[in-house]
Design a protein around this nucleic acid. Structure first.
Length: 201
DNA sequence: CCAGGGATGGACT
DNA sequence: GTCCATCCCTGGT
């Protein structure tokens, strides 16, 4: 995607706009890709669920304050690398968490990385599973999405016939009332979505 | 220095 | 549904 896509201040719009686009990685020359089907927006210093709430600026969160268009990757629960797209102008720590993709390229490598024998939806369902399948580790934190390691591509995916569900984010109970904000977005009915809302596919 | 906790996923009942 | 591995980050001492 062009740099301008990432530099909008409308992180909610970017989170929705990333649905249907393709996330690509080139790890040691091996290509993998998948269609983004689930995202969450984290809106900088105003958002109690954000790592940058109240303007928190540490070694870890400093990545979020850079100019939009880079990766913010951090370790969650000591085990999982979670991948975010940093958005907005420099100094505005907005980010979009990519929670799930639908594989489109490099399935054999994804299976190998996930230690799976056959394709099941949980291969890329959930933010930790997705990064493992794509070979995304913290080594790529702050990498530029215009480079050739991790990037996002426009597609001919037909979003017109897709219904987008907006609902509260996952695992942010610590955020008080902000935990109720409908800042999670996913493609209704897609089997790779990590935790569909009952009655919404 | 150290305690507490986390934007999860997999195994198990 | 429950349990918990695993380790970095943060804030307080």
């Amino acid at each position: 995607m062009p740099l301008s896509f990432y530099q909008s201040e409308d992180v909610l719009g970017i989170a929705k706009g990333l649905l249907g686009k393709q996330l690509w990685t080139n790890i040691d020359g091996v290509l993998t890709a998948g269609t983004i089907v689930e995202t969450e927006a984290y809106r900088g210093i105003d958002d109690k669920a954000s790592h940058a709430y109240k303007g928190l600026l540490t070694d870890r969160t400093s990545t979020m304050y850079q100019l939009g268009g880079i990766a913010y990757i951090y370790l969650c629960y000591g085990i999982h690398s979670l991948f975010n797209v940093v958005t907005g102008p420099k100094g505005t720590p907005h980010a979009v968490l990519i929670r799930a993709i639908e594989p489109v390229k490099g399935l054999d490598m994804m299976l190998q990385r996930r230690k799976m024998d056959i394709l099941k939806p949980n291969i890329t369902r959930g933010p930790g599973a997705m990064t493992q399948a794509m070979g995304i580790s913290r080594a790529f934190n702050a990498s530029n999405l215009q480079d050739n390691s991790i990037w996002i591509a426009e597609t001919n995916f037909n979003m017109v016939q897709q219904e987008i569900v907006a609902c509260p984010r996952i695992g942010v109970a610590y955020a008080g009332e902000d935990a109720l904000l409908p800042w999670r977005f996913y493609l209704k009915g897609n089997v790779y979505v990590s935790r569909p809302i009952k009655g919404n596919g």
